[in-house]
């Protein structure tokens, strides 16, 4: 959907970011291969600011450690969500391939209801805590600001305009905005029940099977 042009973020930069931002991302689904953990603060410097002056080295180390801690906290929250999802999944009839669309929609609704019950007290930011939210905002803003004015217009025309709430059902009359492929390369990996999606004002974590909003943050552009 998005007409994306990474004019300043080249392949090398993306690769550097992958190796740094993905470094501490632990897979929370057994089916997915583990992500190698390699700290490369030099690569971060190269990718974002160019070679650092010696005086900045300590600051960079601090930033890298902060990012690692934030990512670890995020992975923990995602893992906790996966457990809730699994528990809810066990409470509703299993979904198999079917000729009857009613089975698909009723199962989706039932799963969403079960998750809502199990995390009734969930609040915005429970999963995307301030540390990782800051990093997500940095990545998305950097991507967004690298686009031409025309690209930004197309970008915003394409994303849904509703205001999200935790645990809400994703409104079926709104499309699912495409998440930029090159941005996905630098975001922490998610288990396959969750995905990132962009709205006009927010980044959301969407439960794919339940079609619900698990968490969101504002101010991402």
């Amino acid at each position: 959907m998005f007409n994306l042009k990474f004019k300043t973020v080249g392949v090398g930069v993306a690769a550097a970011l992958i190796s740094t931002i993905a470094c501490t991302k632990q897979p929370v689904e057994q089916a997915e291969a583990p992500v190698t953990s390699v700290e490369t603060p030099a690569a971060v410097r190269e990718a974002t600011r160019g070679p650092a002056a010696p005086a900045a080295a300590e600051v960079d180390t601090y930033v890298a450690q902060t990012d690692a801690a934030a990512t670890a906290e995020f992975n923990k929250a995602v893992a906790a969500y996966v457990e809730i999802h699994k528990k809810a999944d066990g409470q509703v009839p299993s979904l198999k391939r079917t000729d009857d669309p009613k089975e698909i929609s009723s199962r989706e609704v039932a799963l969403g209801d079960a998750i809502r019950d199990l995390r009734a007290s969930a609040r915005p930011g429970d999963m995307m805590t301030p540390g990782i939210a800051k990093e997500f905002r940095r990545l998305i803003k950097k991507d967004y600001r690298s686009r031409s004015r025309e690209d930004r217009k197309i970008f915003l025309d394409e994303v849904p305009h509703f205001r999200p709430m935790v645990n809400q059902r994703y409104p079926s009359d709104w499309p699912l905005a495409t998440f930029p492929a090159t941005l996905l390369e630098v975001m922490p990996k998610l288990p396959n029940i969750l995905e990132y999606r962009l709205l006009s004002e927010a980044l959301i974590l969407r439960d794919v099977k339940a079609n619900t909003v698990a968490d969101f943050i504002f101010d991402v552009y």
Binding site: L95, K96, T98, I104, A177
Partner: peptide, 18 residues
């Protein structure tokens, strides 16, 4: 497509194999 719920993959006539 961007207007499709990914759970369409469970609809047999779409032959997506889940």
């Amino acid at each position: 497509g961007n207007h499709d719920d990914p759970n369409q993959r469970f609809y047999k006539p779409f032959n997506m194999g889940g």
